[in-house]
Amino acid sequence: MSGFDKVVNSYEEAMAGLEDGMTIIAGGFGLCGIPENLIGEIKRKGTRDLTIVSNNCGVDGFGLGVLLEDKQIKKMVSSYVGENKLFEEQLLAGELEVELTPQGTLAEKMRAGGAGIPAFYTATGYGTPVGEGKEVKQYGDRNYILEESITGEFAIVKAWKADRFGNLVYRHTAQNFNPMAATAGKITVVEVEEIVEPGELDPTQIHTPGIYVDRLIQGTFEKRIEQRTVRQA
């Protein structure tokens, strides 16, 4: 039974095996639902030439932005970047490569990658710079481009709760890209706010089944807010 226990005891153990040049799929949208401690561990390890697939690249000093400080990222695959100065500097200096990918295509690339589908046709991006050089196929009266799916040596995921078997529940919009990222890693590492015993989570309410999860760790989170916007009470 303990063969299903995914819990590891340290962040070092959680990211063991990560090497230079690998591809990491990361969950999160902006700074919401990002695996902030796993990112911190990648920074501590100093792994370089990484390709990171994530909707955004954090901000200066937080989230994936910290990996720019020591130039650990070679390439970003994202839908929206440049909320950070360092990113812009490295991009303009040619030290960083960016593959801009429409947000829905990015989510589907991860989903398809995790589901064993190597490529898919989508109307998104047809007739735009995104479609340049890609195969076009007509279905009905519309044109579609062929987009290849993405998998990575690692996926890093943030969830709210997990049981020891790696069944995951996300909280609010911190879900975002995390469920797809969880499926697309050869090694999927998940950090959560709380780990409970198997049986304590309602099986009908699981977002990500434990089959996708290889390593699980409980952490504490800063949860920085990018655009704190309030109204008067």
Binding site: H172, Q227, T229, V230
Partner: peptide
């Protein structure tokens, strides 16, 4: 829904513009 009042702010609850909602 609308933006939260100060005591409703939740880092896990944002919109596509990354604003708290």
């Amino acid at each position: 829904g609308p933006f939260p009042t100060d005591d409703q702010v939740d880092a896990d609850m944002i919109n596509a513009g990354k604003q708290t909602v």
